Simulated assay, not measured.
Amino acid sequence: MNHLTTDKLIRYSKVILMAYISFFGLMVMFSNFTDYPSNYEYVGHILSMDTTRENLNLSYRAITSPMLHHRIYWFIITLEVVYTAFCLLGTYHLYRNINTPADVFHEAKKFAIVGLLIGLFVYYICLQVIGTEWFNMDESATWNAKDWARHIVDFMFPLLIYIALKIER
Results as ranks from 00 to 15, higher is better:
Lys109Phe: 10
Val43Trp: 00
Glu168Tyr: 06
Glu54His: 11
Val129Ile: 15
Gly44Glu: 01
Ile98Phe: 00
Gln128Pro: 00
Arg61Asn: 11
Asn144Lys: 06
Arg169Asn: 13
Phe105Leu: 12
Leu120Gln: 10
Thr5Phe: 01
Ser65Lys: 03
Pro101Met: 08
Leu120Asn: 11
Asp50Lys: 04
Ile21Ser: 12
Ala85His: 01
Ile125Tyr: 15
Asn57Cys: 05
Ser140Tyr: 08
Ile118Trp: 06
Tyr92Lys: 12
Asp7Glu: 08
His45Ser: 07
Leu159Ala: 01
Ile125Pro: 02
Glu54Thr: 11
Trp74Arg: 14
Leu160Arg: 05
Val81Asn: 07
Glu133Ile: 08
Thr91Cys: 10
His3Asn: 14
Leu117Pro: 07
His45Arg: 08
Ala19Arg: 06
Ile113Gly: 07
Thr142Lys: 10
Leu94Ala: 02
Met18Val: 08
Glu54Gly: 02
Tyr20Trp: 15
Leu47Trp: 00
His69Val: 00
Met29Lys: 11
Ile77Glu: 08
Phe157Tyr: 15
Ile113Val: 15
Leu26Phe: 11
Glu54Val: 13
Val153Phe: 00
Ser38Glu: 10
Tyr123Arg: 03
Leu58Asp: 15
Val43Asp: 00
Leu88Pro: 04
Phe155Pro: 00
Leu9Lys: 05
Pro37Gln: 02
Ile152Thr: 09
Ile163Ser: 03
Lys8Gln: 05
Val114Ser: 06
Met27Gln: 09
Ser22Gln: 03
Leu79Asp: 03
Leu79Lys: 11
Pro66Leu: 00
Tyr60Val: 10
Asp138Gly: 09
Ile163Glu: 14
Asp147Gln: 09
Tyr162Cys: 03
Ala112Val: 06
Ser38Gly: 12
Gly90Gln: 03
Phe75Asn: 04
Lys14Met: 13
Phe23Leu: 13
Leu17Thr: 04
Met1Ala: 13
Ile63Trp: 01
Leu47Cys: 01
Ile161Phe: 07
Cys126Leu: 12
Pro101Arg: 14
Val153Gly: 02
Thr132Ala: 13
Phe75Cys: 05
Val15Gly: 14
Arg169Lys: 14
Ser13Tyr: 00
Thr34Val: 12
Lys109Ala: 13
Val43Gly: 02
Arg11Gly: 00
Val104Cys: 08
Tyr40Ala: 11
His70Val: 01
Asn99Lys: 14
Ala62Arg: 03
Ala102Lys: 11
Thr51Ala: 05
Val122His: 11
Leu58Gly: 11
Thr6Ser: 02
Glu133Gly: 12
Leu94Asp: 04
Phe33Met: 12
Asp147Ala: 13
Gly119Cys: 11
Ile161Arg: 01
Arg11Lys: 03
Arg11Trp: 00
Ile167Ser: 12
Phe105Gly: 07
Ala85Met: 08
Trp143Lys: 13
Gly131Thr: 14
Thr34Lys: 00
Ala164Gln: 06
Tyr162Gly: 13
Ile72Gly: 02
Glu80Trp: 06
Phe135Ile: 14
Phe155His: 06
Lys166Gln: 03
His151Ala: 09
His3Val: 14
